[in-house]
């Protein structure tokens, strides 16, 4: 997939190397930021930067495996599903994201969804 262009509707938001391993950065947008996670094995995830519990910024949590622990009250969110790990209950909105040649692309539904909302 390395030489494939991302195609339409994909927005470049930065390079993999700009995010520390097991770290996160945010993409700022109107109406709420998106957290881009660099998880175990350089897998990239994009989730709304808001814990379903009390709105904590998930991008500031400790990333472990494919999960993040919210910095405010230690809820653990599964990055794959966006769901809180039991016994807590809640779900975080996920966005399509892909990594091509070290470049991170976010699907612009992430922007449009916001405009529609």
């Amino acid at each position: 997939m390395s030489n494939h262009a991302p195609g339409e509707n994909w927005v470049s938001v930065g390079k993999l190397e700009d995010i520390p391993p097991l770290g996160a950065r945010i993409v700022r947008r109107e109406g709420g930021n998106i957290a881009i996670f660099r998880a175990e094995g350089d897998r990239i995830y994009a989730l709304e930067n808001r814990c379903p519990h009390k709105g904590g910024p998930l991008s500031e949590g400790i990333v472990h495996g494919c999960r993040v622990t919210c910095p405010l009250h230690n809820w653990v969110i599964d990055l794959d599903s966006g769901e809180a790990v039991g016994p807590d209950e809640g779900v975080v909105k996920r966005y399509d994201v892909k990594l091509i040649d070290g470049e991170i692309y976010l699907h612009d539904a992430a922007l449009k969804a916001q405009e529609a909302a």
Binding site: V11, S12, V13, G14, D18, I19, P20, G23, R25, I26, V27, R28, R29, E30, N33, I36, I104, D108, L111
Partner: peptide, 20 residues
């Protein structure tokens, strides 16, 4: 310092233009 800034700020005009 970079770690304290957004990876990308889509609320800024030039960023949006770049994105599109």
């Amino acid at each position: 310092q970079a770690q304290f800034k957004p990876l990308r700020d889509l609320t800024r005009q030039q960023d949006l233009e770049g994105a599109n």
